[in-house]
Amino acid sequence: MPVMRSLLALPLLVLAEPALAHGLFDAHLMERLPLLITAAILGSAWLLYLIGARRVPPRRAESACFHIAMLLAVFSIFGPLDDWAEVSTSLHMTQHMLFIIVIAPLWALARPLPQWRSVTGDIARPLWTAILRSGRYPTALAVLHGAIIWIWHTPQLYILALENLWWHAFEHACFLFTAWLFWWSVLHANPRQVPQALMAVLLTMIHTGLLGALLTFGTTPFYGESRDLADQQLAGLIMWVPGGVLYLIGGGWITWRWLARMWRRQQTGQRPDTLGGSQGQ
Rank of each mutant, 00 (worst) to 15 (best):
A61C: 03
G212T: 12
E86Y: 15
T208M: 15
A73E: 08
M262Y: 09
L198T: 13
D228M: 05
F25T: 05
W166V: 11
L33M: 07
I51T: 07
L47P: 06
M93T: 06
D273M: 03
D26A: 09
L127E: 08
G43I: 00
R5E: 11
L165W: 01
L12V: 10
C65G: 00
F222A: 15
L13I: 09
H188Q: 04
G277E: 08
R54K: 11
I238E: 03
T255M: 09
W180D: 00
L29K: 04
R227L: 11
A73D: 12
L248C: 03
A179G: 03
I151G: 12
L165G: 05
A104R: 05
M30F: 10
S185D: 00
W152C: 07
L106Q: 10
A85I: 00
S226W: 15
A45M: 11
G23Q: 02
T178Q: 01
Q232S: 10
Y247R: 08
L132D: 11
S278H: 14
S118T: 12
E31C: 09
Q279Y: 01
L198Q: 12
F66M: 02
T38N: 00
W167L: 13
I68G: 10
A53H: 02
H207W: 05
L71M: 15
L202W: 12
G121L: 06
L50R: 13
L215S: 03
A260F: 04
I148K: 00
E163F: 01
D83S: 07
L15H: 07
T178K: 08
P57L: 00
L10A: 15
H207S: 08
G52D: 04
G251T: 09
S88G: 14
Q95C: 06
T154G: 12
A53C: 06
H67A: 02
L8C: 12
W258G: 06
L229Q: 07
L181V: 02
Q193S: 14
H145Y: 04
L144K: 00
F170K: 09
F170L: 13
R125Y: 08
T139P: 00
D122A: 14
A142T: 09
E163K: 13
G43H: 00
L50P: 05
G23R: 02
V87W: 12
L48D: 00
L29C: 10
A53L: 04
L109F: 14
V87M: 14
W107D: 09
L33A: 12
A39G: 12
I51N: 02
P272M: 01
L35I: 01
M93Y: 09
P272L: 05
H67N: 07
S6E: 02
M239Y: 08
Q270H: 13
A104L: 05
G252Q: 07
D82A: 08
P191D: 08
I51C: 01
W240S: 04
A64E: 05
L36S: 08
A124Q: 15
A39S: 06
H207D: 04
A161Y: 01
P155V: 13
L10D: 14
I51M: 06
G43T: 00
A21R: 15
W152R: 05
M1K: 14
L12W: 12
P114M: 10
I151Y: 15
I68S: 14
T178N: 01
W166R: 04
H28W: 12
F177N: 14
Q267C: 10
A45L: 13
S226K: 13
T216E: 10
H188N: 06
P80M: 12
D26K: 05
G277Q: 04
L50A: 15
R136S: 10
E86I: 10
